[in-house]
Structures are given as C-alpha cells and as structure tokens.
Design a binder for these strands. Structure first.
Length: 778
RNA sequence: GCUCGGGUGGCGAAACCGGUAGACGCGAGGGACUUAAAAUCCCUUGGGCCAAAGCCCAUGCGGGUUCGAUCCCCGCCCCGAGCACCA
C-alpha cells in the first residue's frame, strides 16, 4: 500500500468530508430547484433582500460573503418558519468602478463584466446561499436598464427631473462630475484627488422637494438607529427664519434674503456677507470697489473646493454697498467672503459676530463692530466680548429694544413675528439636502433617454423606443472636454427628433449608478417580464421588502435615493407603498489588520481557499461566530478550527444515532431540558441577528450532549440538525437525510420548544451580604 | 467642533429589565491514547494572598445614586463611524 493515501476515508458514513457533502447538495438543490420560489403563487411571501454587489474582477471577498451569509441565515430561518422566502441576488455592474478597471486592463467592460459575474456566481453558489437564481439580474442588461431609463422619464414627466447649468464637482483624475455626496472632505471618494469646480449643464432630480417626507417617515421605519441618524444628518433640517435686508445702489432697491437659525440675534447683525457667486454681487458693487471685488470673485471661483473649505483665515472684500437692518433700521456694510457658501441657504448671511464664531473671526480680521445681544444670567450686557457667545440654553436677550430680558427661545419667536409684520421675514425651514445630480460624462452607464432638437429642445425618447442602447464602442476613454465619450460617435449621436423628425442629437451623458440601484428591488420578482418594469400583482405580493440587509456605507445615498424613487412612483400611482424597506439592518464591516479590506491596501481576503480547506459550512458558521453581526470585526482565521470541531462532533453524534439499532429512546432528561432551552435561545437570537450567541448556544448544547460515555438518541439530535441548518445548510441537509427524512430540511418546520421544559428547573438562590456574594443555595 | 457607536481575561467575545462578571470559541498548560506525531478525548486557565478553608482586587479613568452598578447619573480619557466655514 502506498503511503500517499487520501486521509479522508471515502466510505460514506465513516468520515465527514465537507467538499463531498457540499457539492452533492449544491447539485441537488439546483436539480430540484429547492431555492426557487413560485413568485406568482407563493401563499406566504417573505422577501429577504441583500444589497447587490458590484462584481469586481478580484471576485467576492470575505466581507461580501459575511453579509450574504448573514442574510441567508435570516432567510433560511424565515423559511423554516413556514414562509415562502424569496432571496434574489443580482449585480450592480455599471459605473465608474468597472469602467476604470476596464481602461486599466485595456479590455471592454462589455466583455469583462460577464466574466466577473460568472466568477461571482461560482463563488456565491459554492457558499451555499439560498438564492433564487432564476430571478437574477444585472443593471447592465438592456432589459434592465430599459426600465432605468423609464424611471428617468417618469421623473421628467412629474417635473422632478430638470436640467441646469451648475457648478459641479469635477474630478480631474476620473474626468467626471461627481455628486456632492461622492465628494468626501473635498476630494473624490474614489481616487482622493482634490475636486475642482466646473460649470456644466446637468440633469438633476428634485429630491430636495421630498426632504421633509424623507425625514418624517424615518420615525416609522424599523431600521438600524445608526442608519436613521446618518440620514437625518444628511437631510440636515434647520429651523429658523428667512429675513430680508434692503440695500440701495444707484437708486435701485435690492432685497437680500438671508437664512438664519438665530433670528433672536438680529439686533446684533452688524454686517451682511454674500457668497462670491451670489447673483447680486455685480449690481451691488460700487465703482470704486469693482476691481477688488472682481479679483476676489475670480480667485475664489478658481480655487478648488478642498482648499476653499479648509481656508483657516477669513478673507473677504467690501462691496461699497450698505443694507438696512430691518430690526433696528441701522445701515450695515455688505461684504463678500468665501466662508459663505452659495449652495446652502440663500448664499447670503446676516453676520452676528457677537454670537457666531465665524462671524466673530471675520469681524476681528476686518475691524467690524461686535455687538452683544445675548447674555448669560448675571453678566454685564455692556462688557465687551472676548469671543463669540454661542450658548443659547441659558441666554437672555439684551440690547434688543423691547425684546430685552426674553429667553432665546421666546425671542426667536417674537422677533420673527415682529419682522414678519414688517414684511421683512418669516419662519423658514432649511435643508442641507441638495438635488441629486444624475448626469455622468462617462461611457459605462445607461444613456439618459433625451434627444435635443433645435426646434423642440430636450425631447424625451418615447417609451416605446426604449431602451436607448449603449453602443459597443472601442473608444470609451473619457477626456477632459467635459462631454461623454459617446459624443465622439456620430452614428449613434445623430438621430431624428421624435417630435418633428429633423436631425437632432442624443444626450450623451449616462446616468449615475445610484439610479440603477434605486429601484432594482422592484424588479427582482418581475425578472423575465418584458412589458412592464414591475408587474403590479407581483409587486403587491412581494413588496415592500420584509428584510433588507446591507452595509452602512450605503446608509445615506443608496437608501435615501431608493426611498425617494419609491415615493415618486407611489405618488404617480405605480406603487401602493411609499417606503421600500420595512426593516433594514446594517451589518458590520469585516476588517483586516485594523483596516477596511481594499485592493489598494492589499488586505483583501478571498473566501475560496478557506472554503476549500474547511468547507462552506464551517466557513459560514465561523464568520457568524466571529462577533456580533451588526458590528463586524477583524478577520482572523484563528478560531475557525473550533467551529469545524463543532461540525465534526455534530456529524459524529448524528451518525451514532443513525448507526444504532435502537436509538429511539426518550432522551436524558437533563439533555432534553438543555435542548429545549437551546431551541428557544437560537430561535430568539436569529431574528435579532445575534448569530454569534446562537452558535455559542448550539456549541454549549453539543457539550452537554457529549458529557460522559453515553450515546445520544434521536430525540436529542434531530432538532439540533434543524437549528444548525441556517448556518451550515449542507451538513444539515445530509444529516437530515441520514436521519431518514425524505424531504429537504428546509421544507421542515422549525422545532417548537416546550415552555415548561425550557424553563430553568433549578433556581439558584444567591446569598449576598452588603451586596457581596456570600454563597448560593440551589 | 457636533451626532451616533464602542472600551470587559493572553485573544474574539458573553451577561435578559440594576442581582453569581467572563457563557461559547481560540490560544496556553497538564494528562489519556500512540513506538512517535497528527487527530481525538479529559482536566486547568482573570490577577493576587494562603498549607487549606477562605479572603482581597478586577468590566477605560474619577466621582455619585443603590442593600447591590459592566448596566443608571455627573465629569473626563481613548478608539471607530458619519457630518462639518451648513449660517
């Protein structure tokens, strides 16, 4: 006999060989369509959704798998509860990511993406997910993006899509426009290049019209609190007042509107500041000041956003003009400074240096008057301010005529109504949320379905002509002309006007990837239906999504955009609900050596060889055992052996039962009690996504099952197999079969626990003296 | 700066509603089996004092409330995430 023998005996019942078991069951699930749902006829639908991945060339990494497995466990558990669980999975394959990669390796994304998808599919199947592959999709399929274009046309129809010439964030490295939310600290979120300002004509969605609804509905959603907070911050509601200051110049009156959260301090407004881009700047600037103002405006428009926003010292110029403070009739100077942003509020502020740090700093630099209008109790109202007094909780109004002595809260209200009576102000709620710029001057996305005609302007492509196919062009490299590479392809670009038939031009921009992902969950149940984006009865049946799991990196953008699109489609009568995700939980991040996994850091861990070595079941269970699902953790392979040992013991215990001639006894009372406690514990933990403690509980049970020399009986192991099945589906399926069941364990029902049995039988009475434990009586 | 998380053994972590802190796993130490190793199985494992029974200390730091605090309150320190010249 040769020494190079296979360490694993091949005899069926002898040893546990994960890969043999797993491949066998994966094939069986495929053949028997175990994971496929009859979407039209499911009596008890449950939609368990996971955020779809971007199919990168590197393949699925353990961070992705961690999230998918977490969702899979939840889905399988719901199935064992008797629901018809729909767990679809597709690919978010458009976008700058794929395009940049394609450019780098000099291949066409239309060739690359299918390869990547095939690789992902292989990895996902190997991991044993309960995915219904008959309802998969890719955002790059024309039969999908046809409807993405349709969504755009619906927003256009509602007046919620509009085009404007706008200062946009331009990434000089990616050579494209970025949405505000893709600019992180003034730099491109993808390549960290400082972002510049450019003026381009862009398509926007009026998401800011929905700010209040998007904010208000959050209170009704069962979502991770962290995610809701992030959305609230992003929407950024500020309550205050909009005030008007009148300025005169060359006999003309100009009303300058400002937004403030502190109308109570208006008596302390000693000057106004306009953003350099403010439209009134030219008409307010006096002849003497023109060259200084022009210079300043030119300088700030050239400056990139990063350095402008991180300017430490206040800079600015005087316009030569004055305005009247509507509260006290005083003339106050009008300045220009880049610390006032055109994008927020009205692009102009009233400066109250006594009670705003930035205004204080500015006033110090330019020697402008600082007036105190709020005092802490007992303070001298005439004492000069050393710094801005911004605390308003215990402030009292001073130097403000009849409002003196009021609290800040009262003065806010009273002063606003006084100004309103003078027609110089009103209460106003301002939001930080900006309209969503969806134009991208790139190739790899769905073309925006618009045709420009000299006579008829921007004409929507008729719905019957959708999709506007993205042509397969060899030359898709962006340049810095500011127009999409598609503009260089005349045969695609020139097209007759749908209205008059004269030659016209296509819109050459493609839409933002976030639009692709803002409605994909509506499509899954209807995959394969050509006539509509989502069939109304299927949608009625499956949506809103019962459980959505995804990363918190999408807490703001993707989730906000999806909610917005859903609301719009609801308002148009396409949907009966206005919130797409009933329940959302953010999973934690799997990090490696203290850092997020990324190719550039070189710390990406691919699951393939772990699955090969330990098996998908052990790897899945290990990932869940690593730490709390909603917190994630550092990836170490250290304790995977413990999980594997647990599965080995499970295998051995169940096979002992299978091999025994008479294992049908009633079970050891102590063990049975523990079993029922475990059934209860695991059943409580899974819905809470407390997977690590569920695994611990099963391990604990395994320990008590094996105590002593005794052999387990059927009653002691049968439901354990069911408890394990969401985590380790293959081994569970195999053991279930060996226990003599004809049907899949996933067609069985989650075991019930016996209340009385599961209750603690012994009560430990702890004796404490002066709060210190002094012993116990059982 | 503001808003959320979080800080517990050598490590990952558990602890319901204020009631035996450290379940479960890894690692480490010891033992059984073995010619030997691997695998498997058993025991020990927060720190300290003690021959032992037992006692003391311990959940980032300092106070407080309570018969009793990892948990509640006040004041700090550190780590992570988000927002940020947002008026």
């Amino acid at each position: 006999m040769s020494n190079a023998v296979n360490p694993n005996p091949t005899e069926e019942s002898a040893g546990y060989d994960p890969s043999q078991v797993e491949l066998k069951w994966q094939e069986s699930w495929r053949d028997l369509a175990t994971n496929t749902v009859d979407v039209a006829n499911a009596p008890d639908p449950f939609y368990a959704l996971m955020m779809f991945p971007y199919p990168s060339a590197e393949g699925l990494h353990v961070g992705n798998l961690f999230a998918f497995v977490g969702n899979d466990i939840y889905g399988r558990f719901q199935r064992l509860q008797g629901h018809n669980v729909f767990e679809p999975l597709g690919y978010d394959a458009f976008g700058i990511h794929s395009e940049n990669y394609a450019l780098k390796v000099q291949k066409h994304p239309m060739d690359l993406i299918p390869q990547n998808i095939a690789n992902f599919r292989r990895q996902l199947e190997r991991a044993g997910l309960m995915v219904d592959w008959s309802h998969s999709l890719s955002t790059t399929d024309p039969e999908y993006y046809k409807w993405t274009q349709w969504v755009f046309l619906q927003l256009l129809k509602q007046g919620l899509a509009y085009k404007k010439q706008a200062a946009v964030n331009w990434c000089p490295s990616c050579k494209t426009v970025l949405a505000n939310e893709q600019v992180i600290g003034g730099a491109c979120e993808r390549c960290d290049t400082p972002v510049e300002q450019r003026f381009l004509s862009q398509w926007f969605f009026r998401i800011s019209d929905y700010a209040q609804r998007l904010l208000g509905n959050l209170d009704t959603l069962d979502w991770s609190e962290t995610t809701k907070t992030a959305q609230r911050n992003w929407i950024g509601r500020s309550e205050g007042a909009e005030l008007s200051f009148v300025a005169k110049r060359n006999g003309e009156q100009h009303s300058i509107r400002v937004f403030t959260t502190r109308p109570d301090t208006v008596f302390g407004a000693t000057y106004l500041v306009l953003a350099p881009e403010h439209p009134l700047v030219p008409s307010l600037t006096g002849a003497l000041y023109k060259s200084a103002v022009d210079q300043y405006v030119a300088r700030s428009s050239k400056q990139d956003v990063v350095s402008r926003k991180s300017n430490t010292e206040k800079t600015g110029v005087f316009t030569g003009a004055y305005a009247i403070n509507p509260a006290n009739g005083e003339e106050i100077p009008i300045w220009i400074s880049d610390y006032v942003l055109m994008e927020y509020g009205t692009g102009a502020i009233m400066a109250v240096p006594g009670h705003d740090e930035r205004d204080f700093e500015f006033a110090k630099v330019f020697g402008l008057p600082i007036v105190r209008v709020v005092c802490a109790e007992g303070e001298d109202p005439s004492a000069p301010l050393e710094s801005a007094f911004t605390e308003n909780e215990r402030g009292v109004i001073v130097n403000s005529a009849q409002f003196d002595g009021m609290t800040v809260a009262t003065a806010k209200r009273e002063i606003t109504s006084m100004l309103q009576a003078k027609n110089a102000g009103k209460s106003f709620v301002n939001y930080r949320l900006h309209d969503w710029c969806i134009s991208r001057q790139r190739y790899w996305g769905p073309p925006i379905p618009i045709i420009y005609c000299d006579e008829h302007g921007a004409v929507p492509v008729p719905e019957k002509d959708l999709p506007v196919l993205l042509p397969h062009v060899e030359d898709f490299k962006p340049d810095d002309s500011g127009v999409s590479p598609l503009a260089r392809h005349e045969d695609w670009y020139r097209v007759p006007c749908p209205t008059c038939g004269k030659m016209a031009r296509r819109e050459t921009d493609v839409s933002d990837t976030f639009l692709d992902s803002a409605w994909y969950f509506l499509r899954y149940p209807s995959v394969g239906i050509d006539e509509v984006p989502f069939d109304s009865s299927l949608t009625q049946k499956w949506l809103p999504v019962d459980s959505y799991i995804g990363g918190n990196e999408h807490a703001v953008l993707h989730l906000l955009y999806s909610r917005f699109i859903t609301m719009v489609l609801h308002d148009m009568g396409f949907l009966t609900f206005e919130e797409p995700f009933t329940r959302f939980r953010a999973h934690g991040l799997i990090i490696r050596n203290g850092a997020k996994m990324s190719k550039s850091r070189g710390n990406v861990v691919v699951p393939d060889h772990y699955i090969e070595k330990w098996g998908a079941d052990a790897f899945r269970t290990y990932l869940m055992f690593l730490g709390p699902f909603e917190e994630g953790g550092d990836f170490r392979d250290a304790s995977i052996s413990g999980v594997k040992r647990f599965l080995d013991r499970l295998w051995a215990s169940v096979n002992t039962v299978v091999d025994a001639t008479n294992a049908n006894g009633s079970g050891d009372p102590e063990v049975m009690r523990k079993l029922h406690q475990t059934i209860r514990k695991v059943g409580e933990d899974i819905p809470k996504l407390s997977y690590n403690t569920a695994v611990a509980a099963m391990m604990e049970y395994m320990n008590s099952l094996r105590r002593g020399e005794r052999k387990p009986v059927r009653a002691e192991v049968e439901s354990l197999v069911q408890l394990v099945s969401p985590f380790a589906p293959h081994i569970a399926e195999e053991l279930w079969l060996r226990l003599g069941h004809q049907e899949s364990v996933f067609n069985s029902r989650w075991p019930k626990f016996d209340e009385a049995l599961a209750a603690e039988e012994k009560i430990d009475l702890v004796i404490q003296v002066n709060g210190k434990t002094r012993g116990k009586v059982s």
